[in-house]
Design a protein around this nucleic acid. Sequence first.
DNA 1: TGAACATATGAACGATTGTTCACATGTATA
DNA 2: TATACATGTGAACAATCGTTCATATGTTCA
Lengths: 122, 122
Amino acid sequence: MDGRNGGAPTCDYLFVHEDAVAQVLSALPDDEQLYDLAELFRMFGDTTRIKILYVLFEKELCVCDIAKLLGISQSAVSHQLRILKDAKLVRFRRDGRTVFYALDDDHVRSVLALGMEHILEK
Amino acid sequence: MDGRNGGAPTCDYLFVHEDAVAQVLSALPDDEQLYDLAELFRMFGDTTRIKILYVLFEKELCVCDIAKLLGISQSAVSHQLRILKDAKLVRFRRDGRTVFYALDDDHVRSVLALGMEHILEK
DNA sequence: TGAACATATGAACGATTGTTCACATGTATA
DNA sequence: TATACATGTGAACAATCGTTCATATGTTCA
């Protein structure tokens, strides 16, 4: 995935007009943004993480509660929370030995809702 | 990822109240929906597929044009288009030996836009 | 300080994924 | 029908991912 043509033959024409090509390419965000965008969606692309985000939909929960509610090991939950935290999708606060996690902003809720809307209509 | 606790020790309490647990669990979609939701987002979680969806944002394009515009091999594009087609995110029409692909509905555009909005604000 | 508890993390392993390569399929035209 | 061209696809391979296991970190309380 280095943006290079792998040597396979490609057709020797373009169907789209030259100005259409220019339009498409100018509207295309740069590679870094596209990478970040893919990375964002990759966060939602795992069942365990989706479940974690969903149980945090209403209120903050500690690691242990999440693990028990979902029937997943504490370690697995902790690993995934770290990934979600690095992606700034969840935030946490410490209270004694307990760490509470919550959704970082309403965008997360919007994305989940929009995705759910889509699969319910298909 | 079988929903079973891997045997790791979990805490022997719940911070949330019993009714809160019930509320969280009742609001949680069933496993099949959550799997479908994760699968949907997984489609957006790859740079190549994101790029393909983006160049289809404005107009339909043939496989060859997509490959040339993105500098990706025709085979790779074809493989990814099949995945996107199976996920009902793109549709196609045949015109002679050429096959034109287009976004299947406006949900795709909405999801892309919402995701982009999120990363631009972070 | 030491024991108990909640959480974090590194290493390892199996599973999944995306690409390439080679070739098959299907359509148009001479 | 033969050839050229656009697209589709199976196998193989490297890379990435998510879990488990064992253990480390950090906090509370006696």
